[in-house]
Structure formats: structure tokens, C-alpha cells
Design a protein around this nucleic acid. Structure first.
Lengths: 244, 244
DNA sequence: AGAAATTTGTGCGTATGTATG
DNA sequence: TCATACATACGCACAAATTTC
């Protein structure tokens, strides 16, 4: 485990240990409220110096994942986790709209996209039609939980950005103002990866954060494609749910 | 980006750059078959020494994610990606069974679990009944893609391990041999995190690999809970799909 | 209440790894 | 290849808070 004996992985020992412990916490193998193994036990388990274990736990403490109490131990902090349901009607308002502490979505950008990715062109049939792209961040309790990029068929959602701001940051309400009362989720594709630098900046993520990426296609009840969206969720604070 | 100006993250600079590029490849921002930016461009973009970007790209090349061609450039390698469908009937046989190169599941362990996690006890109503736990790895083309842990109500699946081996590594077939012809997915919960040391060993994952974690509850058509499963997928090779 | 054991917090010194130039 | 600056990991010692007996 020492840098001398390990092959160069690009990960420091304390970071590896920190991520191992984080996995167990996110997984609830270490349940909220319970005590972490003592530093002595962690030293034993990982075969490293106490300072190394301490630096690992220190980063988790800085992130607010655990709380250390001198003489007593280190404890897993209880943290609310957002459950985002994926189904026929997938709406932010259902997942975080009812929470008193949910802020409206912040529109970072909205404008024409001259050259959307190939799968977006395909899904929305944008060969002959212009695309509108929106970039948003959504937060709960001051914590950014999701970063979204959406494409619309521009002609179908006139003045989207203005309506979005007018209704106070709700996509569903903005679409209703335009005259679109209902839309359905056709399919969702879920992947996961490490956050990019840009995402870490936009969502203020800790180092090495994992994001859940959901690509979804929404259509009008008659089947006309309406929106192609890419949502990137903080994986340590959000879980996706599919009921069948 | 220099070690002097960065706050200590536990990641070496080349590792950060490697993971950034990997995210773009997994995301298909850098599509299969396309050329990576030149070393010169990467040096420019990340503001680091040429040795540093070379080490980053070298790691991706070792993993087979990119191929370097002298005088030509570095290219993103095309790699098959497994799509695992989540729906009412979620079966391995549907996702990877029809592939000629799919190996049967390898049963690592099967036996009584005296003390399953709280949510498993709850979902399967194991307060008074014994639990059977199975641990498996499933591979395609010699590449381990998923590591599963399943709990059954022991009394409902007598001799499961024997049947599983007899039918050659298929859960659905083993259950049929026991007399269970059909079962349905009740709900699925999806999270993501870095792989643990144990998972990295079992699935032979590269350092810092991300896993998609799916917790699912299966029940008999009459609603009796049958199985609670935790599946951990290699996130760089598997995507989940939900059609609604 | 008090002593001992346990657990986290802190300091210094040394050797090695990392990234730049 | 070498020099420089910083980060990492280890070894040892002791302090402070809490729990245990």
C-alpha cells in the first residue's frame, strides 16, 4: 500500500481509502448514525499509517459525510437523499418540486444549437429543423443536485426561455404556457462516470465525484418527439427509481 | 493544474486528465473511431507538461480505450457496450444470454445468510424465515461485466445452488427447475459509485472504476416476494435502459 | 468520584513520489 | 539528467476528550 510498493496508479493511498469508505457509506453498508471503525481498526484493515487513514477520513469530514468527535469516534452523518422516479411521466416537480427547500432551476443558457450531437438529431428528427438547447442546474437546500442539457425542436417551443423565467423556473409550467399540456417519457438510458471538470465547477462537486447520466426522450401524447435531455445527477445524493 | 497551485486532491495530475478524457469517451463526446486532440492541444488545454498528458493517454492506451498510431494520432477504439433492459421482466438471459460470446454466470458462493441487511429483511419479510444468499459474476467475451448478490427466501428455492449448476449457470432456468416458471420485477433502485477493492478484484476492474448499482425486488405473479438483488455493473461497458 | 483505557487531535522529522523547467 | 518545490507516507511522541470500570 505504500507508494514504494504500489504500482503507480495515480491515486494516493489516502484517496483510495477515502473512496472505499465513501462507497460503503453511499451503499449504506455503513449506515447513517453508526460509528466508523476506529482509526486503529482502519490502520489494521488497510495496513497503512494512522496519518494516512486520518487524511482519508478528514476529506470525508470536510465534505460533511462523517463527523469526528474526539474521544468518542467518527460517525456517519444522516443526509437526505433525493429519489428521482423514472416513469411514463418523469417530472422534476415530482422529484423535488414538493420539497420546501427546493430552489427553482437556474437557466444557465438557452439558445439555438447549430450542431447538436448525432443521436439528438436522430431522436428529434432535426435534419431540416432548428434546435433549441437549454442548460440548467437544479438545487435542493443550496446543494446542486443535477445539471441538465435539453434539446427541443425550436419551432415547437417559441419563446421558451422567456416563459421559463416568467413561470419561475419550471419546465413543465413553461411548456404549459406555450400550450403543451402533457408529454410522456418514451425511453431512458442510464450510465455513470466520473464528473468532468466543467460539471465539478457547475455543481460544486468534491474531487472524484461520480455522476449518474440519464438520457431521456420525451414525446407528445401523439408520439411527436418533443425533447431530448441529458441529466447528470450527483450520484452520492440522488438515487433513481423505476417501478414496474 | 501544477501540484504547486492545486489543492491536494489525492489524484495525480495525469490521473485527473486521464479520467477527464475517459469521461468524454464513455459519454461519446469523443465518439468511437474519432481522433483525440493532439498532445500539443491537450498540453494547451490542461496547461500541463507534455510528459503529463503522455502519461494520461498512455494509461488509456494500456486499458485499450484508445489506440496510438505513430505519425497519425490517437484514436478512440470502438467497443461493444452491453444494454441491460430494466422492466417488468428483467432477465440476464435477455441482456446477455443471446450473445454467442456470453459465458454463463459463475457462482462464487451460495449459502445461508444468518444476518442479511435491514432492507433485505424488510423486502423479503425474513424476520422469521431463513435467507439464502448467492454471489455471482457474469462475463461477456471473457470480460466481467456484472457482480451480483441475491437473497432468496431459503424455503422457496430448495437446492438452488445444485439446480443452478445443473442447468449451466442460468438463474431463470434454475428457478424453473425448482418449479418457479415466472417472476416479475417490482421495483428497481439505481445508484452509482466507485468500485470497492473487493469489486475491483472480483471483476478485474481498472483503478478508479465506476459501477452502476441496481437494487431490485422480484416477486411471483401473485405478489409474493421472491428475490432481492444487488447488481454492480461496470459503468464503462454497460448502460441501463428503461422503456416506458 | 477517580483512575485507566480508548479514541481523536497535533507536532516534528525523514524518505520518497510527482510535476515542472 | 539534474535541480527545485510540493505532496505523500511513515515513525514516534504526546495532548485532549470521552468512555469504561
Amino acid at each position: 500500500m505504500t507508494p514504494q510498493t504500489r504500482s503507480p496508479s495515480g491515486y494516493s493511498t489516502w484517496r483510495l481509502i477515502a473512496e472505499e469508505l465513501r462507497s460503503e457509506i453511499v451503499d449504506e453498508s455503513l449506515a447513517p448514525g453508526t460509528r466508523l471503525p476506529t482509526e486503529r481498526e482502519l490502520v489494521e484493515r488497510f495496513g497503512v499509517h494512522r496519518h494516512t487513514v486520518r487524511q482519508a477520513v478528514a476529506t470525508l469530514a470536510t465534505e460533511g459525510l462523517v463527523a469526528r468527535r474526539q474521544g468518542s469516534g467518527t460517525f456517519v452523518v444522516e443526509r437526505p437523499r433525493l429519489v428521482h422516479r423514472i416513469g411514463l411521466r418523469t417530472r422534476w416537480s415530482d422529484s423535488l418540486g414538493h420539497r420546501a427547500d427546493a430552489s427553482p432551476g437556474v437557466l444557465l443558457e438557452a439558445g439555438p444549437d447549430p450542431c447538436p450531437p448525432a443521436d439528438v438529431v436522430m431522436s428529434l428528427d432535426l435534419h431540416e429543423r432548428a434546435a433549441l438547447r437549454t442548460e440548467m442546474v437544479r438545487s435542493v437546500d443550496g446543494l446542486a443536485l443535477v445539471r441538465t442539457t435539453d434539446w427541443f425542436v425550436a419551432a415547437a417551443v417559441p419563446d421558451f426561455a422567456r416563459h421559463y423565467r416568467d413561470v419561475g423556473g419550471s419546465t413543465t409550467a413553461a411548456l404549459r404556457a406555450i400550450g403543451i399540456d402533457d408529454y410522456l417519457r418514451v425511453s431512458s438510458t442510464i450510465t455513470a462516470r466520473l464528473a468532468t471538470f466543467a460539471e465539478s465547477t457547475d455543481m460544486d462537486l468534491p474531487g472524484g465525484a461520480v455522476v449518474l447520466v440519464v438520457r431521456g426522450l420525451d414525446a407528445l401524447p401523439d408520439g411527436t418527439p418533443l425533447r431530448y435531455g441529458i441529466s447528470r445527477f450527483r450520484a452520492d445524493r440522488v438515487e433513481l427509481n423505476v417501478d414496474t
